Amino acid sequence: MKNDFHERKQNKIARFKKLADKNESKSEQQFKRASQMASVIPFGQPILVGHHSEKRDRNFRARINNIQDQAMVSSSKAQYYAEKAAIAESNKSISSDDPNAIQKLTEKLEAMIQFQELMKAANKIIKNSKLTESQKIEKLGEHNIKEKHAVELIQPDYCNRIGFPSYRLTNNNANINRIRKRIQELENTNRMESSEMEINGIKMFTNVEGNRIQIFFPDKPEEAIRTKLKSHGFRWSPTEKAWQRQISQSALYWAREIITGIDVHQNDIVQNSHDPSGNGPTGHGEDCYSDADPGL
Rank of each mutant, 00 (worst) to 15 (best):
residue 289 Y to P: 04
residue 191 R to L: 10
residue 174 A to E: 01
residue 276 P to C: 08
residue 59 N to K: 13
residue 6 H to W: 06
residue 103 Q to M: 03
residue 256 R to P: 01
residue 218 P to M: 06
residue 63 R to S: 13
residue 249 Q to G: 14
residue 55 K to I: 15
residue 71 A to M: 08
residue 108 K to L: 10
residue 282 T to V: 12
residue 82 A to E: 12
residue 4 D to P: 02
residue 172 N to E: 04
residue 260 T to S: 15
residue 78 A to T: 07
residue 31 F to C: 02
residue 183 I to K: 00
residue 142 E to N: 07
residue 126 I to A: 03
residue 65 N to L: 04
residue 115 F to Y: 12
residue 223 E to S: 03
residue 103 Q to D: 07
residue 88 A to L: 13
residue 111 A to W: 01
residue 231 S to D: 09
residue 36 Q to N: 07
residue 214 Q to I: 01
residue 180 R to H: 07
residue 252 L to R: 08
residue 24 E to Y: 15
residue 5 F to H: 11
residue 282 T to G: 13
residue 83 E to Y: 04
residue 141 G to E: 14
residue 260 T to W: 07
residue 44 G to Y: 14
residue 193 E to G: 06
residue 217 F to Q: 07
residue 88 A to W: 05
residue 198 E to W: 10
residue 223 E to P: 11
residue 233 G to P: 11
residue 44 G to D: 15
residue 66 N to I: 00
residue 212 R to F: 03
residue 20 A to W: 12
residue 54 E to R: 05
residue 202 I to A: 04
residue 103 Q to L: 06
residue 227 T to H: 01
residue 135 Q to C: 07
residue 210 G to M: 00
residue 50 G to I: 14
residue 289 Y to D: 12
residue 183 I to C: 01
residue 128 N to R: 01
residue 213 I to S: 14
residue 46 P to N: 10
residue 112 M to A: 15
residue 202 I to C: 11
residue 176 I to C: 01
residue 97 D to N: 15
residue 167 Y to G: 02
residue 273 S to E: 14
residue 209 E to F: 01
residue 104 K to H: 00
residue 204 M to R: 13
residue 54 E to K: 02
residue 262 I to E: 11
residue 254 W to Q: 03
residue 12 K to T: 03
residue 173 N to C: 06
residue 278 G to L: 13
residue 191 R to I: 09
residue 184 Q to L: 11
residue 183 I to D: 05
residue 132 T to Q: 03
residue 288 C to V: 11
residue 106 T to W: 04
residue 145 I to R: 05
residue 288 C to Y: 09
residue 44 G to Q: 15
residue 106 T to D: 04
residue 6 H to T: 15
residue 12 K to V: 05
